[in-house]
Design a protein around this nucleic acid. Structure first.
Lengths: 124, 124
DNA sequence: AGGTTGCATCAATGAACGTCAATACAAGCT
DNA sequence: AGCTTGTATTGACGTTCATTGATGCAACCT
């Protein structure tokens, strides 16, 4: 259940020095844009927020997410899939229910990418 | 030239405590989503990066941006407009040329929103 | 005034997106 | 085996979006 994710904001490869450090090249921009696009929908942002509010290691059952929206269950499932494909969250089925959590570090890495120029020497 | 911008990540109102602090309500999510959606396109991300690379107070002429893409001039103009409407950048005409810059603090506020739970008392 | 350059707006088109009803799949229960 | 509940996938539909050529506007230069 944790396949087909992006590696842009990946653990190892820091992807790039930061938005303000130097102009992004085509590939970097394309990969990063997928992540921001995933966050560029009100429903997905709320889903992310609901999941992230559980903190590190926290999980949320889909059965808790769906009733928070006035949308059909397939629609919520679709948005969760997009967030997962963007490498922001992951999920696991336990019995009848499926639980989602925020991949550790993604939000921090995204934040770091946006803020300071973060010049060279980041791997140490 | 600085009208019709969003105030989500506004200077004063911190909008909300952060993505992970508490579940976003409908309005917060809708406003924030516009900003992320603006960044959710490869061309716009590169544009932002090119402009932000100039640093605080830095500017870029459109005539420097357009030739960096294999896109028509109206397309670039359109993307710049979207970034401006998202409250990320602003512009000014000086003579024949138009210069764009990143609105001060926006990226840092966006980053702060993404990362730590940032509980209350942020204005100091 | 006329011509030229830089940038924005308009109108049209094809692609991508959000949504849903219907359906399929997985797991527990009887 | 059947039924029921929770979740994902499929197919279709209307809307939004990215892109372009044509056009308009602003400023500089003879």
């Amino acid at each position: 259940m944790s396949n087909q994710e992006l590696e842009v904001i990946g653990q190892d490869a820091a992807c790039c020095a930061g938005l303000s450090a130097a102009p992004l090249d085509d590939d970097q921009a394309a990969e990063l844009a997928k992540v921001f696009k995933a966050l560029g929908d009100p429903v997905r942002l709320r889903l992310m927020s609901m999941i992230a509010s559980r903190g590190e290691g926290g999980e949320v059952c889909v059965c808790e997410l769906t009733p928070a929206f006035e949308l059909s269950q397939p629609t919520i499932s679709h948005h969760l899939k997009l967030l997962r494909q963007a490498g922001l969250i992951d999920c696991e089925r336990r019995g009848t229910w499926v639980y989602y959590w925020v991949l550790p570090g993604v939000l921090d890495r995204l934040a770091a990418f946006l803020s300071a120029p973060q010049s060279a020497g980041a791997s140490a």
